[in-house]
Structures are given as C-alpha cells and as structure tokens.
Computed example of a mutant assay.
Amino acid sequence: MTTVKDILQKQTAVKVIDASIDYKDYVAFDLSAQHTDELKLDLTDAGKFEEFVENHLSANRAKVAFGGYLEKRNLYKRSSNFNDENSEERNIHIGLDLWIKAGTAVLSALDGKIHSLQNNTFLGDYGPTVIVEHEIEGITFYTLYGHLSLESLNGKKVGQLVKKGEKIAELGKPPVNGDYAPHLHFQIIKNIENKKGDYPGVCSICELDYYSENCPDPNLLLKIGT
C-alpha cells in the first residue's frame, strides 16, 4: 500500500523558499541542546540569535542554514508555551527549519489548497502560520509553514488553491514571528486531527513515537544534500 513517505520520496524539484537559491548554497545548522550549551549561546535574544545565524552562513559561504528534525533543543525553555508545570517539557523539534533573512519568499511545496491560517501569538510560537492540504494518489496530508510575516495572511482564504512552487508567504521578523531569528518552520503532517492554523512543532520525549510517525522528516520531500 502506498504511504505518505512513498509519495514524498517520489517528488522531485521541491523547494519551499526562494527557488533561485540552489541547494549547494545550503549548510547544515546544529541547534541541539548540547551544541548551544557548549557555545553558551543566548537563545532569549532574537537579535543576537540572528547575528549567530548570519555568522554561520558567512563562515560557510552559504545562503540558507537548515536542519533540526527530531533535534532536542534548549531554544524553548524561555517560553511557558513549551514548559507547562503540569506536563513534560516539550523540547524535541518535529519540523525542519530553514534560516534566512526576513522577507524571503515562502513557496508551496506541492499543489494543494489552503487548509487553515492563523497568527499564533504566544512567545516562541509560530507567529503567522499557513497550513496547506495536499491530496496525491488518494492520500491526504498537510504542510505547515510557520514564522511568516503578518502580511502573509492577507488576502488568503480557506480552500484557496495553490500550485507547487507558488509564493504563498514571506518570512517574518521578530517579534511577530514568535520572536526568533528569521526562518521558516516547515513540517509535514499526516493526521491533523481537528486542528486549524496550528499544530505542535515541538514534542516531549514521551510523545516522540507518535509525532515522529505522524510528522515524517521534511527532507524526504525537499532532499537537501542528497
């Protein structure tokens, strides 16, 4: 039986930001808890964080930094959105991040229609977010685009058709984008349940088996570095 992973692996020439940037100009980016602890990186200051991203890109002569799927991070400790005293800390990232300057075009990964959109305004959340629904070979799944500009939500409506490679948004600046250095959080979701305009992008260790199955590695689709 065909699965979502099968469908993702069959797709070619997929990009979700500025199509003019070749994948050879991408560089891997380690934001694991161990690495950021070693660097004593201040993750609470979006300006310093953006400078850190820019330095990483410059040092590697790259235009986009990428990574983070199933990465355990300290990035979320600053926000009660991920640290509810009544539940286990959520610190495992279940999407893929693409770090580049604000204003960069965000593209629909595949043909589809807008499922939902919302501005998620908690500190450390997605900020403006668009979710696109796709149906291929009779199988429905979703792609989520988070940390957008507020203007990206203008003129959009649920059910609006989008084409693969079509510009659907732009990356936002802090604090509108959840107060992060500018980047796109890109996530694939098999079962979105009843959620609209939002879906967890970070999970706890006890939830990992479920979310790693429900949210497969976005690089199966993007194929960066393969």
Rank of each mutant, 00 (worst) to 15 (best):
E135R: 15
F122Q: 14
H134Y: 09
E88A: 11
V132Y: 07
R90Q: 15
E135N: 11
L110G: 08
I94W: 14
F122R: 13
L96D: 02
V132E: 04
Q118C: 12
Q118S: 13
T104S: 13
I100Q: 14
I131V: 10
G103L: 03
N86P: 03
L110Y: 09
H93E: 10
L123V: 13
H115F: 08
G112F: 10
D125W: 11
H134I: 01
S116D: 12
G138K: 12
I136W: 08
K101C: 07
T104V: 08
L96W: 14
Y126G: 15
G124R: 08
E89H: 12
K101Q: 14
I100W: 10
S87D: 15
V130R: 00
D111I: 04
H93V: 06
R90N: 02
E135P: 01
E88V: 06
E135T: 11
H134A: 02
G103A: 09
I114H: 04
I139T: 03
T129Q: 07
G103E: 06
P128Y: 02
G95V: 08
L117E: 15
A105R: 08
R90L: 09
L117H: 10
V130M: 01
T121G: 08
T121A: 12
L107H: 04
H134V: 05
S116E: 07
A109V: 02
Y126H: 05
G95L: 04
L98A: 02
T104C: 06
L110R: 00
Y126K: 00
S108L: 09
G95K: 11
E88Y: 14
W99A: 12
I136M: 11
N119M: 06
N119L: 03
E137P: 05
W99C: 09
F122K: 14
I131L: 02
L96R: 15
G112D: 00
H115P: 12
E133V: 05
N119A: 09
I94R: 05
N120G: 09
F122I: 03
P128Q: 06
W99I: 02
N120H: 05
D125Q: 13
L98P: 02
I114F: 05
D111G: 06
T121N: 11
H93Q: 10
D125K: 08
A105G: 08
N119Y: 03
W99E: 05
A109M: 03
N119C: 04
L96I: 15
I136S: 09
I92Y: 12
L107M: 03
H93K: 01
T121W: 09
T129V: 03
I94Y: 01
T129M: 00
